[in-house]
Amino acid sequence: MHFHIVRALADGPASIWKLLRRTDGPIRHVYAACRELVAGNVIRHEAGQFVLTAGQHPVVAAASRRDFRDVKDQLAPIVRQAPGPAAEYFQERLVLEDLLKRLDFVYQRGDLAGRRLFVLGDDDLFSLAAALTGLPARVTVAEIDQRLVQFIADQAKRRRLEVETLHYNAADPLPKRFRRAFDVFVTDPVETLKGFTTTISRGLAALGHPGTAYFGLTELECPPVRWMAFQRMLHRAGLVLTDILRDHSWYVNEAIDEAELAQTALKRESPFQPLPPQDCLWYRSSFHRAVTVRRPTPPITGRVRFDKSFYSDRWVMTTS
């Protein structure tokens, strides 16, 4: 709330009506945040308008950022050097511009500056993108692919970024030192019932309250009945959805090359053979945001069997 108010005032003086237009949450919370910011000499109220004070406050600097073009310039060569996607881990990298769209959305919602981020699975290199902004209080990435763990650690060290890496399989319980230690977690979960529930459970184990979860879901391999099941699971765990950005994130199709495609149900079950070469970006997901309404209760806490059912079921068409 404080972030949204200061960000609104970074554009100039604003009435209470303009602040209500630019902030999210109950009116009472907006009033309380304004009182706290005035008491802290971050903003002042005069002649019916709120304005930023002349003092140098960290929240003002964090809320005044306009774009992440500098992050894109630094991240682009890193992405080109990164290990290619591994189909056995259901990896497919985001288009760089859409990775930055995710980063910007997390920032705009007040979930980047000063926050402790837990990234679960990171072939997109979101952890490095977040760290390059200099805004999070902490960035930790947990990844099953040892190639990516080493690559992210090496790049962070080379650029003096505070990114903690963990070689981790989400089928295992989250190590105790990471439980209830974060404000935000970000993931692109596996879309099977087993894979999604397990992946989200590990993220929820990392979250405290208040906390925020971000994740992508497709419609290509995740039908509405499954979206409903996932939403019910989130509600039972103590979260409520606040945002669904349709077709927000597009993927580069690197993992599904022609040889791999020949082994998939996407190829086998096509009524029109042969399938032509891919000639456009077509695989995409909608980006979700959910917030805790109480301390989250992960539906799974113990170890689960890591087998084909974790990554594959009748709806998953793009893996062999």
Rank of each mutant, 00 (worst) to 15 (best):
A130C: 03
L132D: 02
T133Y: 01
G134W: 00
G134K: 03
P136W: 01
T140M: 12
I144V: 12
I144K: 07
D145V: 10
R147M: 07
L148F: 11
V149W: 06
V149Y: 03
Q150I: 05
F151I: 08
I152P: 02
D154C: 10
D154T: 11
Q155Y: 09
A156T: 05
K157M: 11
R158T: 13
R158C: 09
R158E: 15
R158Y: 09
E162R: 15
L166W: 00
L166T: 00
N169S: 11
N169Y: 03
D172Q: 13
P173Y: 00
P173H: 00
P173R: 01
L174H: 00
R177C: 12
R177W: 09
R180K: 14
R180C: 09
F182V: 12
D183F: 06
D183P: 00
V184N: 05
V184C: 11
V186H: 09
D188H: 06
P189D: 03
T192K: 01
T192R: 06
G195D: 02
G195M: 03
T198Y: 06
T198D: 06
T199Q: 12
S201M: 11
S201D: 11
R202N: 07
G203Q: 04
L204C: 08
L204P: 02
A205H: 08
A213Y: 05
Y214R: 05
F215E: 15
F215Q: 15
G216W: 02
L217Q: 02
E219C: 12
E219S: 14
C222N: 12
P223K: 09
P223T: 08
